Amino acid sequence: MKVSLRAGEKIYVNGAVLRADRKVALEFMNDVSFLLGSHVLQADETTTPLRQLYFAAQIMLINPSAKDEANLAFKRMLTALLGTFSNQQMLKELKLIDEVVCNDRIFEALKSIRGLYALEAQIMSGGSGAAIPAQTGQVRPEATA
């Protein structure tokens, strides 16, 4: 798998944080878990339940030594969300995300969670959420090569 980075861009690879000092292309020759810096959510940005769920999943991907603890936190949060939301589309998507995480496809789960942010915003603002199209079906292959 080949990844291109701009100057100053960060990439998280198997728990290590790398920053490119110039434009560079990296080719991963074996299995690797990575997340581009632009997809990393900072702790102070976890302002909604889905963003908190994303953060826990992100930790599983970028910090292998904390994966088990982050997975437990993810499962607790997911269980709480399934008990809180009544929107059928949200519930369906969350169950699919759970399945994806159980299959250790964390990158795919992150993309799916990001795709639900608009639906979450609509639900939290009092809307029905019916007008937001499902986006988790349009998943990019996971970030392993």
Rank of each mutant, 00 (worst) to 15 (best):
D98K: 10
A7R: 07
V3S: 07
I123L: 12
L61M: 15
A66S: 12
V13Y: 03
A134P: 03
I11N: 09
S128G: 12
T84N: 11
V32E: 01
A109H: 06
F74Q: 05
E69V: 09
M124Y: 06
H39Q: 15
D98N: 11
V13M: 11
L36W: 08
T79R: 15
A134S: 10
I113L: 07
N30P: 05
A118F: 07
A130S: 08
I123R: 06
G15S: 05
L35D: 01
I59P: 00
N14F: 08
S65Q: 11
L94I: 00
A121Y: 04
L81A: 03
A145T: 10
T144E: 11
F74G: 00
L50Q: 00
V101E: 00
F55M: 12
K75L: 05
L119W: 02
D31R: 09
I97F: 06
P49T: 05
A134I: 00
G15F: 06
H39M: 15
F74H: 04
F28L: 10
P141H: 07
L96T: 09
I123M: 09
Q58D: 07
F85E: 02
A118E: 06
A80T: 10
N30D: 13
I123H: 04
D68Q: 13
F74M: 02
K23D: 14
K92M: 10
R19P: 05
D68R: 13
R51F: 07
E142H: 08
N103S: 07
I62L: 09
S33V: 04
L26R: 03
V139W: 04
T47C: 10
R105N: 02
Q122C: 11
V32H: 07
L116G: 02
V13E: 03
V3K: 09
L41A: 02
A20Q: 05
Q122W: 12
P133E: 11
L50M: 09
Q135I: 04
M60I: 08
D44S: 14
E93S: 05
A121D: 08
A130I: 07
A80D: 15
K75R: 15
A43F: 14
E142D: 15
G83L: 04
A134G: 05
R76I: 10
F55T: 01
A130D: 11
A118H: 05
M124K: 12
R19A: 12
D68I: 02
Y54Q: 09
H39E: 15
D68K: 14
L72A: 13
E27I: 02
R140H: 13
A57G: 14
E120I: 09
I97G: 01
G137Q: 03
R6G: 06
N71L: 13
V13D: 00
V40Y: 14
I59Q: 11
L96F: 10
I62G: 03
L36S: 06
A130C: 03
E99Q: 08
A43Q: 14
R114N: 06
C102V: 12
